[in-house]
Simulated assay, not measured.
Amino acid sequence: MSTPMTRRDLRERMESGEAPAMASVPPSPRRRRGIGRMLGDVLLWIAALGGAVCIVLVILAVTAQITLIMFRTGSMSPTIPAGSVAVVQHVPASAIEVGDVVTVDREGELPITHRVTSVADGPTAEQRVITMRGDANAAEDPFPYTVSSVRIVLFSVPAVATLIVGMGNPVVLGALTAAATLLVVWAFWPRSPRRRERGVT
C-alpha cells in the first residue's frame, strides 16, 4: 500500500528534479455533450423563443390593441407586396392623417388596407370621412369611407403570410404539436448517471 503524497512531498520532489508518478494522480473526468444533446438544446431554445413571441403578441393585442393582418393582393406594392404580414394598431378616427396606411372594416365585405389620401370631418365629432388609394392603383377607391376607428399599419414583414397560413393547417398543427411533445419528453426524460472512468473508485 503506497503512502499518500502530500503537497510538501510533491514540492520537494519537483525542486530536486524528481518527477512524480503521474499514474498516482487520478484523471479528472470531463463531461462531453453529444451532438444530439446540443441539437436538442437549440430546438428547445427556438421553441421557447416562439412561445415568448406568442405571449408578447397576446399581451399587445389585449393592452395596446395591436394585431396582425395579411396581404393577399399587391394593391399596396411595392411598399407592402402580396404575401406580407403587417402589424396594425387600432386607433380612433381623430388620429388619422393623410399618408397613413390604414385598414378599414367594411360591412359585408373583406377589410381593405390602403393609403389615406384625404381626411374630412364626419357626421359626428368621433367620425371622419376618408378617401384611400392603393400604392399600386392608378385611381382612388370608388367611394369614401366614414369611420370612427381604423387599424393603422405600424410596419410590415414581406413573404411570411404563406408560412403563417401553412401553420394554420390542421395537419401542420398536429405535426408541430407532436414534435414539440416529443422534444419536451426527450429533454426531461430521466437519464442514468455516467459510468465512472475505469480505475477510479
Rank of each mutant, 00 (worst) to 15 (best):
M132H: 01
C54D: 13
T73K: 09
G83Q: 03
Q89H: 11
V98L: 06
Q127S: 15
G122E: 01
I55V: 15
W189R: 11
T67E: 11
R194G: 09
Q65F: 02
P158I: 10
R33F: 13
P170N: 01
A64C: 11
S94L: 01
F155V: 03
G51Y: 08
A64P: 05
G36S: 10
A82F: 00
G199P: 00
V185T: 11
V102R: 04
R7A: 03
F143H: 14
V129I: 15
P20F: 04
L39C: 10
T63C: 11
G74T: 11
A61K: 13
G74K: 08
T131A: 14
F71A: 06
F155Y: 12
I59C: 06
E107Y: 07
M70D: 10
A125E: 11
S2Y: 05
E107K: 12
R7D: 05
F155P: 02
R37K: 12
P27I: 11
G50N: 09
A86N: 05
V91M: 11
G34Y: 06
V119Q: 01
G40W: 03
V153W: 03
V165Y: 03
L10H: 01
P142V: 13
R106D: 08
I46V: 14
A48Q: 09
T63H: 02
V147T: 10
R8H: 07
E197M: 15
T6E: 02
P123S: 12
R37E: 14
S156A: 15
F155Q: 02
A52N: 01
I112W: 05
V56T: 09
W186T: 13
A48M: 13
R32G: 02
M70Y: 02
T3H: 09
D41G: 15
E197V: 12
G108Y: 05
T103D: 06
N169W: 08
P26G: 00
T201A: 15
W45F: 14
T6Y: 00
A21F: 06
T201E: 15
E15Q: 12
E15S: 01
V88S: 04
V165D: 06
R133K: 15
F71V: 02
A82D: 06
M76K: 09
A175P: 03
G50P: 09
D121W: 03
G134S: 04
S118G: 13
S75R: 03
G199L: 03
V25P: 03
A159S: 12
D105G: 10
S16Y: 00
A139I: 11
T6V: 01
A52Y: 05
R7Y: 00
R7C: 00
E140K: 12
A136G: 04
V165L: 02
A95R: 15
R151A: 09
F188Q: 05
R31C: 05
V157N: 01
S77D: 13
G50I: 09
T3G: 03
W186L: 15
N169D: 15
